[in-house]
Nucleic acid binder design. Structure first.
Length: 587
RNA sequence: GCCCCGGUAGCUCAGUUGGAUAGAGCAGCCGCCUCCUAAGCGGCAGGUCGGACGUUCGAAUCGUCUCCGGGGCACCA
């Protein structure tokens, strides 16, 4: 529809250029927008206003000239000039009937577009360290990433969903030691658990499994484990970081490489499986789980560093190897290899992003928590240093969600292990409400997550409001059967021109916007627009439902109305599916 | 100190990338079930778009300054 009008306008402009009315206009970008008010028609164009300077002509006069040059079209009912010089298009009602037919014909495919034209997108999201269960902060990134991926797919992109697993590095070592120490306790060793270890109950479970399957095989003397280790926090001259590092060092010394790896991987694999299960129950699935350790084992970190070296962006200083990220706008250069010859976490990220580039995607999307925003310039710098345009990578930041229960903020702190897990949230409010609430707000917006509202089965709750519209439509078709009538959507003889009242026009109009909303939400990375749209659509439907009876005696009118609400049902179901929310047939 | 995000109705938030009279939902007030689910619908009221200046036909939207809230500024991960 939009493209059709754009084409008409383009022809009109060309005609005006040819007859000399317009000169020196260069390339004209035609912008069309949906109107807010019915008196302004369906689409409005501000072309005459933007061209007024170049044309040296009053906007309204110019608008008139454009309108005069406009080719005729069956789809356009009338064109008006309004306000300062807007050109308003009133579409023929037949275009709305067309929409209903399109929806019923395309079904699940209605809403799909081809903006992406097969371009490939890599989208990485959540990627939480596998050191414990996901918490509610990860949930927002999960819902956002999964929904965005769905939307991009509908818009014609080939999407690859990936979880980056930080299965190497110090945090994992801390987990391994935590598991081992709990295991030693089970063997009967007496020890004081380090304050910086992972305190959560899940660590006991992993240790217990390890003990059940291996007996005392990994047992060591507690005194030996804590030999020559600096004091923990809380003690005199205590330092929790040095304390835990000493424990890691001793663990690696006491256990063979193979045994250490077994303990390490017991923790890793158990938690990763748990995360995987949690996410998949949340309706979030991945194409690949990319291991950081695989980067090390395949020597890709060194290769990536060599690449930067070759491109001339590395230098040595104070014994460390630095990346010149400041030449690409970062506020300072960053260390890649530390003085102690260990690679930094950043080195892994360089290798990981080079790997993404090498895999040849047209677009790379990283979704991070907003607390990592300071990290963006250096990763963008990596992309540029590898010779690619920095906008090939889009880093999308998701702000935290603050939970409220009974009007009170729910306090959380990671340190004490007192955080609400995603699983607990899902159990409390349900998957549907959780998915919807997470993406209801713009992702960069700080969000208040009202647990009581998400749980409430009332008209206050937007999820139920939308689902209820879907269920109501399903019930109408049940009623239809009970009344002994039937309806066949494939009947070509259904006279949609019987749909004439304002509620019907509004609803059809709303349905016709769906593909635009999907595309816009996808390419702007703003899935909340879809949530907003579905609420509006549900509202249009509920209003219609209250104002008119669908199951009327008049066969033609009844069938026309049933076609319309069936189309509405399809669109609601499609929208909810992209959001990962179910569309119940009854409630 | 520097950087990022936000500030819109009492509350939670939209605002189609600079357009026409700034919109929803809650909360408040008034109405609507003999009728396809009232988990619904209609109406009323509610605003100095944090503030100031600027850019132009036109600003909640863009720029500069400023105030308030949140976050970030490692040879940590």
């Amino acid at each position: 529809m939009k493209t059709h009008l754009t084409e008409l306008l383009k022809q009109a402009i060309d005609a005006l250029i040819n007859d000399g009315t317009l000169t020196n206009v260069g390339t004209v970008e035609i912008m069309l927008e949906r109107t807010k008010q019915r008196e302004h028609g369906d689409f409005a164009c501000n072309l005459a206003l933007t061209l007024t300077k170049i044309a040296k002509c009053k906007p309204r006069d110019l608008a008139q000239k454009i309108v005069n040059a406009l080719p005729a079209s069956d789809l356009v009912d009338k064109v008006e000039i309004a306000g300062p010089g807007f050109i308003n298009f009133f579409m023929a009602t037949s275009t709305l009937h067309n929409t209903v037919q399109q929806v019923l014909k395309l079904q699940q495919q209605y809403g799909q577009g081809n903006h992406g034209s097969g371009k490939t997108v890599h989208i990485e999201f959540v990627s939480a360290n596998p050191t414990g269960p996901l918490h509610v902060g990860h949930g927002r990134g999960a819902a956002y990433g999964a929904t965005l991926a769905n939307l991009l797919e509908q818009t014609g992109y080939k999407v690859h969903r990936e979880y980056y697993v930080n299965d190497a590095g110090r945090q994992m070592d801390i987990l391994a030691v935590s598991v081992w120490l709990r295991y030693l306790e089970l063997c009967g060793e007496k020890l004081v658990f380090p304050s910086n270890g992972y305190q959560g109950a899940y660590v006991y479970d992993i240790a217990a499994t390890l003990h059940r399957e291996n007996g005392d095989h990994f047992r060591a003397d507690a005194a030996e484990v804590f030999l020559e280790i600096s004091a923990d926090a809380g003690q005199e001259n205590g330092d929790k970081e040095a304390h835990i590092d000493g424990l890691i060092y001793n663990a690696k010394k006491i256990l063979s490489d193979k045994d250490y790896r077994t303990v390490h991987d017991a923790g890793l694999e158990t938690i990763l499986q748990d995360i995987n299960k949690d996410l998949s129950q949340f309706g979030v699935r991945y194409d690949t789980w990319f291991s950081e350790r695989s980067l090390i084992e395949s020597d890709k970190i060194n290769k990536a560093i060599d690449q930067l070296q070759k491109n001339g962006y590395l230098y040595k200083e104070n014994g460390a190897l630095w990346f010149k990220s400041s030449t690409f706008g970062d506020e300072k250069d960053r260390v890649v290899i530390r003085e102690n010859s260990q690679a930094t976490y950043f080195a892994s990220d360089i290798a990981y992003h080079l790997d993404k580039l090498d895999r040849g995607y047209d677009q790379i999307i990283d979704i991070w928590g907003a607390d990592h925003h300071g990290y963006v310039p250096r990763i963008k710098a990596v992309i540029e240093a590898m010779g690619q345009p920095s906008d090939k990578l889009a880093v999308l930041l998701v702000q935290f969600a603050i939970l409220y229960r009974g009007g009170e903020k729910v306090q959380m702190s990671t340190r004490s292990g007192e955080f609400v897990t995603l699983r607990e949230l899902r159990q409390e409010v349900g998957n549907d409400a959780a998915r919807f609430f997470y993406i209801m707000r713009k992702s960069e917006q700080h969000m208040d997550f009202d647990l009581d509202l998400a749980k409430s089965q009332s008209n206050d709750n937007p999820v139920y409001y939308i689902q209820y519209a879907h269920a109501r439509i399903c019930r109408v078709f049940e009623q239809l059967k009970q009344k002994g009538w039937s309806y066949d959507a494939s009947q070509p003889s259904i006279p949609l021109d019987r749909l004439t009242n304002d509620h019907e026009l509004d609803l059809m109009n709303r349905l016709s916007r769906f593909p635009e909303v999907i595309e816009s939400a996808a390419i702007n990375f703003e899935p909340h627009m879809l949530a907003q749209y579905l609420r509006d659509l549900a509202n249009d439907f509920h209003t219609y439902y209250n104002a008119h009876t669908f199951l009327v005696e008049d066969d033609n009118l009844r069938n026309a109305r049933l076609s319309l609400i069936l189309a509405t049902r399809v669109v609601i179901a499609n929208g909810l599916r992209y959001l990962g929310v179910s569309a119940p047939e009854e409630m």
